[in-house]
Design a protein around this nucleic acid. Structure first.
Lengths: 135, 135
DNA sequence: GACTTAATTGACGTTTACGTAAACGGAAAC
DNA sequence: GTTTCCGTTTACGTAAACGTCAATTAAGTC
């Protein structure tokens, strides 16, 4: 009765491997590979893998990272930031450094995107210009 | 005398392979590889490669594309957009489609970046919070 | 003209991120 | 009770993007 009884319903949601594959548009092979790489750690019901909402979150981070062009080991670094232990100050300072680097890389990426989008705009208008000149 | 005599000075700038390697922080091996892939097409002075400002621009697009996580074939697609021929309307319409897809992908990427940056912010403040609690 | 330095060519090696095929296991449907 | 479906395991295959030699050449320099 004194236990923290209000554990959220979210906790016991579970997913099959094909659930996740469908939702995130990846193959089951890929998901198992991510497990081999230590990025996911599903439970088992018999031989079958059972994924928790924690795995669900992690897979979301993985596919997002992939969309950003990160390698799996970079994705791993990012994921590891999420479950840092309350630990010592050295660790924390190290993490803050990593965070800074990541942020800078992401800001560079965002800048690259802006540049590319601008150039796409001008290519597009050039295209449209030529198209209208063909009529 | 009737020739277009005012060709810009920019035109005859040339670069060695190590010039480019230094400037863009890539290896000469990589640069030659890009040539093998048809992304660069330097001239020759004897056996040595001579890169023009066109190659310079292209290499810039390549490294930017790489920073964004694009594969070389995706980079190729983007580069090819830059030198489209005045051609037929079918081509132009096709290009417009490609541009649209690219833009959507880039916007998705930008969105992913915003999400990740936000999360980095909260991880960072959590970190700082814990650090200050250790004093 | 020997020496160093930069570049080339060719070839094989390597890492990453899965794909693909084979062979098997359990559970549900008919 | 056997087909069908999903999942598992093991293992080999592969494409991309270079790295890493090794042998050769050409260009300057002292």
């Amino acid at each position: 009765m004194l236990s923290n009884s209000a554990a959220l319903d979210e906790k016991d949601i579970s997913f099959s491997i094909s659930d996740l594959a469908r939702e995130f548009g990846v193959t089951t092979r890929a998901i198992r590979f991510y497990e081999d790489e230590g990025l996911l750690s599903p439970g088992r019901s018999g031989r079958q893998r059972v994924y928790t909402s924690r795995d669900h979150v992690r897979l979301k981070l993985i596919v997002r990272g992939k969309r950003l062009g990160f390698s799996l080991s970079e994705v791993r670094e990012i994921i590891e930031m999420y479950d840092l232990d309350p630990g010592e100050s050295g660790q924390l300072r190290y993490f803050l450094e990593q965070i800074k680097k990541r942020r800078e890389a992401l800001q560079q990426q965002r800048h690259d995107i802006e540049l590319t989008l601008d150039e796409l705009d001008s290519i597009e208008s050039e295209c449209k210009h030529r198209l209208s000149a063909l009529s």
